[in-house]
């Protein structure tokens, strides 16, 4: 299987000298195409820091990170922007939709920045919204949608560019269990359709749905194991 994400001995230090916080302390990790990986660990263990580096939102202090075979550290600002746009779909805990902007316009954004024509953009955005079951809410603005629906719009936006990997940082952290289930079942379906997914969580049930589980503690990987996924969305087999 081809490797999509390849993290080699990465450290991340916030601040300088004595007051510096070593958020990542020599993390190595490879993720193959089509994998469904969950990252777990206590609060402050460096999960978000790792995720931001994986998503090219931040750069490691030392170590290398290869995204789809390319060393991210060697990229210019412009090329990083391009990488974020083409290769990565990011889902945040806080949804991060653009306020007072319709769902479909939000989903179109990454395509607009990649220079796609308006008609094609709209078609793909609608397709993507349909995937998360929100085609009928396309014209709704974020504050007219429930938390679960907003997060599903964010998922639609993350996958509309058909990225190499979908990264989700505690996507259900701000949702109740029912809304969380809505979002997670979308992930199940997407993985069943072949998407690579990395999800951060501190809930055991969420971690159990993945087929690989990485545990972080104090900025280090303390376990990395394959597992038989449990509790996945029942219909997931149907897409295969």
């Amino acid at each position: 299987m081809r490797t999509v994400l390849d993290v080699r001995d990465v450290t991340k230090v916030y601040g300088h000298g004595d007051t510096g916080v070593r958020a990542l302390d020599g993390v190595s990790l490879e993720v193959a195409r089509g994998e469904y990986l969950a990252v777990m660990g206590p609060s402050g263990s460096g999960k978000s820091t790792l995720m931001n580096i994986l998503g090219c939102l931040d750069l490691p202090t030392t170590g290398t990170y290869l995204l789809d075979g390319v060393d991210v550290g060697s990229l210019s600002d412009e090329q990083l922007t391009l990488a974020r746009n083409r290769l990565i779909g990011f889902v945040f805990q806080a949804f991060n939709l653009i306020p007072r902007t319709s769902a479909v316009a939000n989903v179109e954004l990454p395509l607009a920045y990649s220079g796609m024509k308006a008609a094609e953009r709209r078609r793909r955005a609608m397709f993507s919204l349909d995937l998360v079951g929100l085609a009928d809410r396309a014209e709704h603005e974020p504050d007219q949608l429930s938390g679960g629906q907003q997060q599903r719009v964010a998922v639609a936006r993350a996958l509309v560019t058909e990225p190499a990997v979908l990264l989700a940082d505690e996507p259900t952290g701000n949702l109740d269990s029912h809304a969380g289930e809505e979002v997670l079942s979308v992930f199940d379906d997407l993985n069943a359709a072949g998407h690579t997914i990395v999800i951060i969580t501190h809930e055991d049930e969420v971690g159990a749905r993945a087929d690989r589980l990485v545990k972080l503690f104090d900025g280090r990987v303390i376990s990395d194991s394959r597992q038989e996924p449990a509790g996945r969305h029942a219909a997931s087999g149907a897409l295969k």
Binding site: D77, E78, T81, N85, N96, L97, L109, P110, Y113, R157
Partner: peptide, 15 residues
């Protein structure tokens, strides 16, 4: 924050 979101989605600085 909005600019952060746009940048995360791959908006070039010029745009």
């Amino acid at each position: 924050r909005e600019i952060g979101i746009r940048k995360a989605l791959g908006a070039p600085r010029r745009v």
